[in-house]
């Protein structure tokens, strides 16, 4: 298997991008974006996670099985968020207090 090396320059650039995105997260937390508060925060977090996975974890050089492993993590995260949100969003449907 060929070995891949990510240059130090790329690693530093990505590091500072991540720091910048963290600062952006903090700034956004103090802005009132209404119903967009959570989606914007999650979008920034997703971008940061992608940079870590693709660059720092070198997933872009990974074999299909490595991608499959990474994708399964994302799938289970979506499962956790999706089914929890399904509960939260359907709580008032029955019209019974507490249910």
């Amino acid at each position: 298997m060929a070995s891949h090396v990510t240059s130090r320059l790329v690693l530093f650039v990505i590091f500072f991008v991540l720091v910048g995105l963290t600062a952006l997260t903090v700034w956004v937390a103090y802005q009132d974006l209404g119903s967009w508060n959570a989606p914007v925060a999650v979008a920034i977090a997703t971008l940061k996670a992608m940079l870590v996975i693709v660059i720092f974890m070198e997933m872009r050089f990974g074999q299909p099985l490595t991608w499959f492993a990474g994708a399964s993590g994302v799938l289970f995260l979506l499962l956790l968020i999706g089914m929890t949100m399904a509960d939260a969003m359907s709580r008032g449907w029955l019209g019974v207090p507490g249910k």
């Binding site: 499962l79 399904a86 509960d87 359907s90 449907w93 249910k99």
Partner: peptide
């Protein structure tokens, strides 16, 4: 991984989620 809500039937979890 798909069944965890059955621990929460008596909480304020929605009935629809509980059914699933």
């Amino acid at each position: 991984f798909l069944v965890w809500g059955h621990h929460m039937f008596t909480s304020t979890q929605s009935v629809y989620a509980a059914m699933v």
